[in-house]
Computed example of a mutant assay.
Amino acid sequence: MKIQLWSIGKDNDPYIKDGIAIFQKRLQHYVDFDLKLIPTVKQAASLSIPELKKQEARLILDMLQPQDYLVALDEYGKMLNTIQLSEFIQQRANAGVRQVIILIGGAFGIDNSLLDRAQLKLSLSPLTFPHQLVRLIMTEQLYRAYTVLNREKYHHQ
């Protein structure tokens, strides 16, 4: 199985980039993982929020393959603890899912057309985090989930 973390927005600040690189390297031991940064829609500042979200959704929908399992990070999504996240990953692998896409939307969230396409809407927290930090948190959480699946000592229960 391959896991990709897609994020709309600018490149990471150096301290975020360094943190992601650490966990990305560790993750490669368990899974084919990739982070894909998707540039912000051109002339985004001149668009209304609904139109911006629609254009971002069209861009993402065009990039998705029909068989991709889409997880949309959304403030109203389901919250999972670490063990549940590891079980979710194992269930997708057992089901023969070839690629899981975890999507961090744009600054104003994810359009409903894209949320409707998602097989899972996931919330990391009721708090709001900067998108760049979410990339780091999600990468670390994936690593943590794989250490749980492999009964390694990184995660303490």
Score class of each variant (00 low, 15 high):
residue 2 K to D: 05
residue 41 V to A: 09
residue 60 I to V: 05
residue 65 Q to M: 07
residue 56 E to M: 01
residue 144 R to H: 10
residue 130 P to R: 15
residue 33 F to Q: 05
residue 90 Q to G: 05
residue 96 G to Q: 09
residue 66 P to A: 03
residue 84 Q to I: 06
residue 142 L to K: 04
residue 46 S to V: 10
residue 37 L to S: 13
residue 156 H to A: 12
residue 58 R to H: 07
residue 4 Q to F: 05
residue 13 D to R: 15
residue 132 Q to C: 11
residue 65 Q to I: 03
residue 70 L to Y: 00
residue 120 L to D: 04
residue 122 L to E: 04
residue 76 Y to M: 07
residue 74 D to L: 01
residue 121 K to H: 04
residue 54 K to C: 01
residue 19 G to R: 11
residue 20 I to K: 07
residue 39 P to I: 12
residue 111 D to F: 02
residue 37 L to C: 13
residue 148 V to E: 04
residue 109 G to Y: 03
residue 41 V to R: 03
residue 96 G to F: 07
residue 119 Q to H: 12
residue 35 L to V: 13
residue 51 E to H: 05
residue 67 Q to R: 05
residue 79 M to C: 13
residue 33 F to G: 05
residue 150 N to K: 10
residue 151 R to M: 11
residue 131 H to T: 11
residue 78 K to H: 06
residue 69 Y to D: 02
residue 106 G to Q: 02
residue 80 L to C: 08
residue 125 S to K: 13
residue 57 A to E: 00
residue 73 L to K: 00
residue 53 K to N: 01
residue 139 T to P: 03
residue 113 S to G: 11
residue 55 Q to Y: 05
residue 59 L to P: 00
residue 107 A to G: 09
residue 73 L to Y: 02
residue 54 K to S: 03
residue 145 A to S: 11
residue 32 D to C: 12
residue 40 T to C: 12
residue 87 E to T: 08
residue 74 D to Q: 01
residue 39 P to Q: 14
residue 93 A to H: 04
residue 75 E to M: 10
residue 11 D to W: 12
residue 23 F to M: 13
residue 38 I to C: 11
residue 54 K to A: 03
residue 92 R to W: 04
residue 34 D to I: 15
residue 110 I to E: 00
residue 38 I to E: 06
residue 79 M to P: 08
residue 76 Y to F: 04
residue 127 L to N: 15
residue 86 S to A: 14
residue 54 K to H: 04
residue 91 Q to N: 12
residue 83 I to H: 09
residue 79 M to A: 14
residue 115 L to G: 00
residue 73 L to W: 00
residue 31 V to Y: 13
residue 129 F to G: 06
residue 31 V to M: 10
residue 128 T to V: 14
residue 116 D to F: 03
residue 38 I to S: 09
residue 102 I to N: 00
residue 75 E to W: 07
residue 76 Y to N: 07
residue 83 I to G: 08
residue 93 A to V: 08
residue 123 S to A: 12
residue 88 F to L: 11
residue 100 V to I: 14
residue 67 Q to D: 06
residue 90 Q to D: 08
residue 150 N to Q: 10
residue 143 Y to P: 01
residue 149 L to I: 11
residue 147 T to S: 12
residue 136 L to Y: 10
residue 6 W to R: 03
residue 39 P to A: 14
residue 96 G to H: 06
residue 33 F to D: 05
residue 137 I to Y: 07
residue 42 K to M: 12
residue 114 L to A: 01
residue 74 D to V: 01
residue 131 H to I: 07
residue 137 I to W: 06
residue 108 F to M: 01
residue 64 L to I: 04
residue 144 R to W: 10
residue 153 K to S: 15
residue 121 K to P: 01
residue 81 N to K: 09
residue 92 R to M: 06
residue 84 Q to F: 10
residue 119 Q to G: 11
residue 35 L to A: 12
residue 23 F to V: 10
residue 105 G to F: 00
residue 4 Q to M: 08
residue 37 L to T: 10
residue 137 I to M: 13
residue 136 L to G: 08
residue 14 P to A: 15
residue 129 F to T: 09
residue 135 R to W: 05
